[in-house]
Design a protein around this nucleic acid. Structure first.
Length: 269
DNA sequence: AATTACCACAACCGCAAAATT
DNA sequence: AAATTTTGCGGTTGTGGTAAT
């Protein structure tokens, strides 16, 4: 395949460089690879005149030597004014984790719940952040173990970040965070304007609470500097049906713990 | 300073469903 | 009703940028 590139405001004028990253055999061939500024302008103009849709026709009418498919993708994933760029907020990450637990790899469906985010972006997030960790831990993203990790470690950390950003730092004494219900819940995040919140499940017995015996984040910016004790051990997850206590597979396996600390990287947004 | 390894993500592909002719 | 075209989706890839060595 010809070569797209990480190019937030494409692009270094491929036509002038003769860059090898463009497949452009002759004047009649369709272009592939990164879009140039001129192409973007042309596409935007063409859409403003003809509107979205009928992408093949639009590609022809615009004079772009691109496939309709390529035009559509460029517009939807990059040029469309609503598209938001930049790091996913903790709230957005939380939502993605939750929705993926319900819907699996239904990226477009998940993206619909995150205004301005594209399915491609969410997919990339999942692959680069979530799947990577599963790979490091040598477990599948669908495995109960991995879901447990998400519930125990990832989500509390995101909640902590959200708390930090939305209110003054909580006291260091034990705090209780109301948390969304993940994975096993039928409740869906709801939209309140542009803000989202999670509806507590009607059955309070299923609501998830984190009782922080101590706050693993209060003193250190990242988790992996503590040594023997895992952060997981500092949480209890009450689900009503079960009290998720730290499991043997977490605490007994040093090599696993070593891997677990790789979660730190996930928070470096 | 040079090299290597890894990361992030834009853009591609194939396929299937939906819409149109 | 069948054929064709368009649209949308999920998976994958290639490469520039960056960090590590």
């Amino acid at each position: 395949m010809a070569s797209p590139c990480k190019n937030p405001s494409p692009s270094p004028s491929p036509s002038s460089s003769g860059s090898s990253s463009f497949i452009e055999d002759d004047q009649s061939e369709v272009r592939r690879g990164p879009w140039s500024v001129d192409e973007d302008s042309l596409l935007i103009h063409s859409i403003s005149v003809h509107g979205e849709g009928r992408w093949n026709l639009l590609a022809i009418r615009s004079g772009l030597r691109r496939t309709g498919k390529s035009c559509r993708l460029r517009w939807l994933n990059y040029l469309k004014p609503e598209v938001r760029r930049g790091n996913l907020s903790p709230q957005e990450q939380l939502l993605i984790l939750d929705l993926h637990s319900r819907w699996g790899n239904r990226w477009s469906k998940i993206a619909q719940q995150l205004p301005g985010r594209t399915d491609n972006e969410i997919k990339n997030y999942w692959r680069t952040k979530v799947q990577k960790q599963a790979k490091i831990l040598n477990i599948g993203t669908n495995s109960p173990e991995f879901k447990d990790i998400i519930n125990r470690l990832w989500i509390p950390r995101l909640l902590h970040q959200i708390n930090d950003s939305s209110s003054p730092p909580p006291p260091h004494t034990a705090t209780t965070h109301p948390t969304p219900q993940f994975s096993d819940s039928d409740s869906l995040p709801t939209v309140d304007g542009n803000r989202r919140h999670f509806e507590q499940n009607s059955t309070s017995s299923e609501s998830v609470e984190i009782s922080q015996v101590s706050d693993p984040f209060s003193d250190v910016p990242s988790w992996n500097h503590g040594g023997g004790e895992t952060a997981a051990a500092n949480f209890e997850y009450t689900t009503g049906d079960s009290l998720l206590q730290h499991t043997d597979w977490i605490d007994d396996d040093d090599s696993f713990n070593g891997c677990l600390w790789n979660f730190d990287g996930l928070w470096q947004f």
